[in-house]
Simulated scan of single mutants.
Amino acid sequence: MGIYVNPGNNAFEISRYSDIYVDKSMLISKLNTLYKTEKRFLCVSRPRRFGKSMAANMLAAYYSRGCDSAGLFSGLAVQEEKSFQAHLNRHNVIRLDVQRFLRSESELSSFIPEIERKVIAELLREFPECEGLDMCNRLDDALEQIFYQTGKGFIFILDEWDCVFRMAKEQRDMQKRYLDFLRSLFKGAEYAELVYMTGILPIKKYGEHSAINIFDEYSMTDPRGLWEYFGFTEEEVEAECRKRGVDYGEMQKWYDGYLLGGRHIYNPKSVADALTWKEFQSYWTGTETYEALKVYIDRNYDGLKESVIEMLGGGRCRINARKFQNDMTTFTSKDDVMALLIHLGYLTYDKYTGEAFIPNMEIMQEFLDAVDGPGWDGVTAALNRSEEL
Rank of each mutant, 00 (worst) to 15 (best):
M54H: 02
K334H: 12
F367C: 03
A274V: 08
F12H: 10
F147T: 00
Y349R: 06
S210I: 00
Y21D: 06
A382I: 01
E190A: 13
A77Y: 11
G153K: 01
E362A: 09
Y196A: 02
Q99T: 07
T150Q: 04
D298M: 02
Y21Q: 03
E190T: 02
R100M: 05
Y196F: 15
R166H: 15
I297S: 07
S64R: 04
T289D: 07
F331Q: 01
E288D: 08
L389K: 08
F41W: 10
P113Q: 08
L293R: 06
V93N: 15
G66D: 13
T37A: 02
L340T: 08
L179A: 13
R177L: 11
Y352V: 00
H209S: 10
F147M: 03
Q171R: 13
R183F: 01
G314A: 13
E228A: 01
Y266I: 02
R46N: 07
M251N: 10
K205M: 14
L304T: 02
I94Q: 02
Y62P: 13
A121I: 05
E208C: 00
I297M: 06
Q145K: 15
D180L: 11
Y4H: 14
S184D: 14
W227P: 01
E107Y: 13
Y248F: 15
C43T: 08
F232I: 01
L260N: 07
N300A: 12
A382F: 05
N9F: 03
L185N: 11
I203D: 04
G132Y: 08
F280T: 01
Y258M: 07
A274I: 04
Q149T: 03
G66P: 14
D302V: 03
L182I: 14
R40H: 09
P223E: 04
L347W: 07
E306A: 14
L383M: 12
W376E: 01
E170T: 15
Y301I: 00
L344D: 12
